[in-house]
Simulated assay, not measured.
Amino acid sequence: MALMAAHGEIGPMPDCGIFADTGWEPAHVYEHLDRLEKLLPFPVYRVSAGNLRDEIASVRPTGKFLKIDIPAFVSNNGKPGGLVNRSCTRDFKIDPIRRKVRELLGIAGKRSPKEAVVEQWIGISIDEVIRMKPGREAWQVSRWPLIEKRMARSDCLRWMDRNGYPEPKKSSCIGCPFHSDAEWRALSKEEFADAVEVDRRLRDTTRGIARTKGELFLHRTCKPLDEVDFSTAEDRGQLNLFLNECEGMCGV
């Protein structure tokens, strides 16, 4: 979306882009952002609410209260259960961006305007149309340029290829519980080891706390991450009759 704006295919030209850094993104996300900053005719601001990795499973203030920012899976009596409530998107993405927008508008610490004074573009594609939501505050109006153009993720990738840009990989935190097995496999050796350590820490930190029911895991099977079988059917010697790679869009 940002590159299409730079090419004049979406207008008007944005005043800026804002990237909310959780501190736990894969290396390819930061590499892509570094490239974008050199290509775009408008500034890109990096904002942060701290390091999500360091916040996960932190017990405070005296061991009686548990804070889990991510949607970890809960195992009850050894059986996979549901998810704990998450606040990571709000705390580490939405709120830091909102604070930066207010700063740029000169209204930080002031009463919010009663009418829309900023248009915020959100880069979801038509595959994710269910994520379209109106702005929560009167001073912001949301816009979805890719959906206006009826562009799916595959259309975005074709646009990148036509214009000579490398295909960007999906963006998500290293240890996001919403990862598919393909996304877990795509992590580098170092990134996967990092996720394994955090997965183990989830249980070590929360064990014995009265308000914690069950054990917490990053993988939906509720197994320690380093014990999950991530092999594919082909790895196990089974024939794959599908000619096209799955895009992971069956559920949207």
Rank of each mutant, 00 (worst) to 15 (best):
S154M: 08
I174T: 01
V129R: 06
N51A: 02
G8F: 12
K38L: 08
G17V: 10
V117L: 07
T22W: 04
N51Y: 04
R185K: 14
R136W: 06
W121M: 13
D235G: 09
C246Y: 13
I130S: 14
T89A: 07
T22E: 02
M160H: 11
N77G: 15
G164K: 12
K213R: 15
R203N: 10
E128K: 05
G164S: 13
S125H: 09
E137G: 03
G164H: 10
L3E: 08
L216Y: 01
K169F: 12
E247Y: 05
E183T: 11
A182N: 13
C176R: 00
P134C: 01
W184H: 09
F42P: 01
S172I: 01
P166F: 10
I68L: 13
S112M: 10
Y45T: 05
D161G: 11
C250A: 12
N244E: 13
G135W: 06
K114G: 09
N76Q: 14
L243V: 08
A182W: 01
N244G: 04
G11I: 12
K100Y: 04
R150V: 05
M4V: 13
P166M: 14
I147G: 04
I56V: 09
M132V: 15
D161A: 15
E115P: 02
L3F: 06
H28W: 09
V117D: 03
G17W: 10
C173H: 00
R53T: 04
E9G: 11
P71V: 03
P61H: 08
G175C: 12
K79H: 12
A193T: 09
T89H: 03
L36H: 04
G208Q: 06
T89G: 02
K189G: 08
P43N: 07
A20H: 02
R53Q: 08
A193K: 11
A20Y: 01
G251Y: 00
D194Q: 10
I126K: 02
R90C: 06
C250Q: 08
R35F: 07
S188P: 03
W144V: 08
K133S: 04
M249E: 08
V74I: 15
D194W: 06
